[in-house]
Computed example of a mutant assay.
Amino acid sequence: MNRSGKTADTMEGSGLTISASSIKVNEATLDEDTLVFSITSQKLSNGMGVCVCRTYEDFEWLQQSLFAPDEPDLHGVIFPPLPAKLIMSPQSQINNKTLKQLGFLALGDCCRTYCEALELYLQQVALHPILSKNKALETLLTNTESPGKQRAKKGIFNRLSQVMEEKRKESHKDVDDFFQNERDNNSNMTALTKVTTERFLDVVLAEQRLSVASKHLSSSIQLWVNQEDSANAAFSKICLKTSKVFETIKRNFEKTAENNISTLGLGLDLQSRYQEAEKEMLFRRTCKLVELEAANKNTERAKANKKGIMEEVRNVLEKQFDGMSSMARQEVGRFHQSRVALLRTALVSWCEQQLNTATEIAALYSEHLEACQKLPEE
């Protein structure tokens, strides 16, 4: 069983020659001011390993390549969400802007959490029954040359137009109760997931601060130790024992925070981004619905000499809308199943790791207690 909640036998996409379960983003290295990710995978036919190096622009190229504007049915697909770009500052410090944009993905040692998020993204694309057939995915995983240079950049005016369109159409009433209910549920779940993720992130940041404070306190106590002064030997021993206790407390907070980030934190972050991805798909369908309703009105008002042309336009839009809606229904069903499986896997992994940490720390506390009980004898 892997983090997607599926077994290896059910993971392989029908059009992909790479084993989806074998896709790993192993590490990120900084080349001047650019992060380079090492990606490994295995061929399904012979198990041969493949290793490529990719930048974030390559991932953006893949995401854009998956969305084909000339295939209306694909507008009903919930595309696996690509994490926002990780910007490395010269001092490798996490500022408030980066933390707000990336959340848990900005934390973790040596970009490990961010690599795991990109790994999950690639695996989700490879698992998708339609997107896995796109040759762009195999190009990204196997070609030695970077495909990111072919990326088409979006201008700021495109984004501004999209925002204005969203404001105008997002409250449009749907003709299908199934999709209207899904839009309402998505709006509620998106808000709740975002709040939950933010609160859990606050917990992790507090644990990290407590870990640093415990380390400082341990170091400060060690300054009181004077092994050359025999008169204060007993006091020095107490200070040493106390310092070790705070080292263990520091380790507890540190390990707990790491577990929170790599399991439930990563799971909540993925949930939040997937809710946004579903919202985008539902909005695309709403836009097509508005377009179809406008075509119906234009057909009714059209004069006799233009009636046939307008009916033809309406019929094309209706066919596109029906195909998109059919695809969207399937995607919503897959989305809910995947969402539950991913969250369950994250919760189970979180519980297991925290239990292991608690067992380890409890054993260390027992050793400290035993050592402290022997102090009067010494």
Rank of each mutant, 00 (worst) to 15 (best):
L16D: 04
P129E: 07
C351V: 11
V340H: 06
F37S: 01
G103V: 13
S272A: 10
L210E: 01
A358N: 04
A257C: 05
D176K: 00
E280A: 03
T7R: 10
K237A: 15
H368W: 02
L99K: 06
A328F: 02
C51Q: 15
K297Q: 15
E12V: 09
L355P: 06
T359W: 07
L264G: 01
G5V: 03
Q64A: 13
S4W: 05
R339T: 13
T299K: 08
K244F: 04
L210K: 00
R334Q: 08
Q63T: 15
E145N: 07
S146A: 10
I130H: 03
M11Y: 10
A152D: 14
R285C: 01
E182L: 11
V77C: 08
E60Q: 15
E258K: 04
D184L: 06
S211I: 00
L122W: 04
Q208L: 15
R284M: 04
L364W: 03
I18G: 00
F246T: 00
L347H: 13
V195Y: 08
Y274E: 12
Q330C: 11
L342S: 06
K241S: 12
R168T: 04
S211K: 00
A358S: 08
E119C: 14
S218I: 02
I39M: 07
I130V: 09
I221K: 11
S219T: 07
S187Q: 05
M164H: 09
F59A: 04
W350N: 09
A257R: 00
R199E: 14
H172Y: 07
R285I: 01
I39L: 08
V245M: 02
K237P: 08
F200W: 11
